[in-house]
Nucleic acid binder design. Structure first.
Length: 333
DNA sequence: GGCCCTCTTTAGGGCCTT
């Protein structure tokens, strides 16, 4: 199986982190392939949006985990807080006092010197213990990061285990004109029980932090990330007065796809890649978690074909600050 | 918007993301 062979391809490159890294990939992709259809174990959604029971009393509801893989598990959920946000978070992260998450996070991140991380990576010091790879996807009201908004976000931590996925609809507070693309309508998201981006970001930060390894970095993977997903995410964070943590790095699978596929005259869209790799279609295309599950498999195939190690992948990763997303007026002089 | 390709580079069209 490709899952196994990929481990071998990476083992050729990674030395110090070999044993743990093998488990890292094997566990992650095993869990994905064995339960990709229904192992979403952490959702923050409008209750009616997904047709779940629970009515309107609860602002958001959870779905139980169903993954088979082992992983970090937080079982404590007995604290009956009236704050539903805390109630959700207690499933995945330790409950903390209500603090300004962003300020605290930025302060803490300053203690983790970027150059130290880079140096550790360069020296290949236990990469597995440093890197959490998260495949993600967003659905939006359109292509303009200035005028459009995120309406759905999904993540999958490839290390697998409980709470390895996260997905939610997002209230854009504007009309969704492109529902024909993803099937997400205004009525589904413009609701008081669907979190707005400013509500979601603190939850997202805590969720990612719960998946992050001690003093490690998180590598987010998306298709066309450099041009679409990351600038969009960055814009939404800015709009809500948040900053993307400095230990969040991003990788775009589009250039990898061009290297592998386009040389053979094929297209490099997500669906074209699905056909190229003969991956069975599961879920609706252009829904965030379905695309995340698909990209998780494609990412595995691409890195296998290109014989890429984690070190190689990190070398082509980028920070949001490296992107020049400022609006530039074309110089007509 | 950024990247890639070509009938190119003093440019333009297509792809990719929703």
């Amino acid at each position: 199986m490709r899952t196994v062979t990929m481990c071998f391809s990476i083992l050729q490159f990674s030395r110090s982190g070999v044993p743990r890294f093998a488990g890292f990939w094997r566990g992650g992709f095993h869990s994905l392939s064995s339960s990709s259809r229904n192992n979403s174990n952490f959702r923050v959604v409008g209750s009616k949006t997904y047709g779940l029971e629970g009515g309107y009393r609860r602002r958001w509801i959870r779905r139980p985990a169903s993954t088979k893989a082992e992983g970090r598990s937080k079982t404590a959920d007995s604290n009956k807080s009236s704050n539903i946000r805390n109630e959700i978070l207690e499933e995945t992260v330790s409950a903390t006092a209500a603090v300004n998450v962003n300020v605290a996070r930025v302060t803490e991140l300053r203690k983790i010197e970027y150059c130290d991380i880079q140096q550790n990576i360069a020296e290949n010091k236990g990469l597995v213990s440093l890197v959490t790879i998260v495949v993600f996807d967003i659905e939006t009201t359109g292509f303009s990061r200035e005028n459009d908004r995120i309406i759905e976000i999904a993540l999958r931590d490839l290390s697998g285990g409980e709470n390895s996925t996260f997905q939610t609809l997002v209230n854009p507070q504007k009309f969704v004109a492109n529902h024909h693309v993803h099937g997400i309508t205004s009525r589904m998201v413009n609701r008081p029980d669907v979190p707005r981006m400013e509500d979601l970001i603190p939850i997202l930060l805590k969720y990612v932090r719960s998946r992050q390894k001690p003093e490690g970095i998180v590598l987010f993977v998306a298709h066309n990330a450099r041009v679409f997903d990351v600038p969009f995410l960055k814009e939404e964070f800015n709009r809500c007065n948040y900053v993307i943590p400095t230990d969040w790095h991003f990788m775009d699978t589009l250039p990898l796809s061009r290297q592998v596929v386009k040389a053979k005259g094929q297209k490099v869209s997500l669906q074209a890649l699905r056909e190229y790799y003969k991956i069975e279609s599961v879920g609706s295309a252009h829904r965030a978690m379905a695309d995340v599950n698909l990209l998780s498999i494609i990412f595995q195939r691409l890195t296998f074909d290109l014989k890429m190690s984690v070190s190689n992948i990190l070398e082509i990763s980028f920070a949001p600050t490296e992107l020049n997303t400022n609006k530039k007026k074309k110089d007509s002089s």
